[in-house]
């Protein structure tokens, strides 16, 4: 019975870990924002961690958890370096788009260019704020520069 439960536990955890992994993989492949891509990598690592933990418990081996610890350590290093590089790279182009970097492309091939994207159709509803009559509304420069809604 216990063994069956262990087997069932392992089965489920492996599935969850795999689902997490593939979601991270999907995100890595789809998204163009560098930071989001890195987050998806971390997500994949989390999925792996779950699998490792499950195997460790199943086989009654500490090695699974050790591995997870090392994964955490390495992920941290990786995050540090990667984010530094991302910053440097983004300073060059001004944005975090990965599709800008196509210099490894073969000679003579056409680069990938975004086609014209329509603006987002529905505006975020913003309830208008009416100033009292006779007074100019306050215009917040910072607000204009940096939208608060993300």
């Amino acid at each position: 019975m216990n063994d069956v439960n262990e087997a069932a536990l392992l089965h489920n955890y492996l599935l969850v870990g795999m689902v997490l992994f593939v979601i991270g993989m999907t995100g890595f492949l789809i998204r163009r924002n560098l930071i989001v891509m890195f987050l998806c990598v971390e997500m994949m690592l989390q999925g792996i961690s779950l699998s490792l933990a499950a195997w460790g418990r199943y086989h009654n081996d500490w090695g699974g958890q050790m591995m997870i610890l090392f994964i955490i350590a390495v992920a941290s290093c990786e995050a540090a370096i990667a984010l530094t590089l991302v910053l440097v790279v983004s300073r060059r182009t001004g944005n975090l788009d990965v599709a800008v970097w196509q210099d490894l492309r073969e000679e003579g091939e056409l680069p990938f260019v975004d086609r014209e994207l329509p603006e987002e159709t529905t505006e975020r509803p913003q309830s208008p704020v009416l100033p009292p009559a006779g007074r100019q509304p306050d215009v917040d420069e910072d607000e204009l520069m940096h939208r608060s809604h993300v």
Binding site: L29, M37, W101, Q102, D103, R105, E106, E109
Partner: peptide, 17 residues
């Protein structure tokens, strides 16, 4: 085959996967 060398990192990742 040259068209595979797009220079796009996600493309390479997809190829690997």
């Amino acid at each position: 085959l040259r068209t595979m060398q797009t220079g796009l990192v996600p493309f390479y990742a997809m190829a690997m996967i």
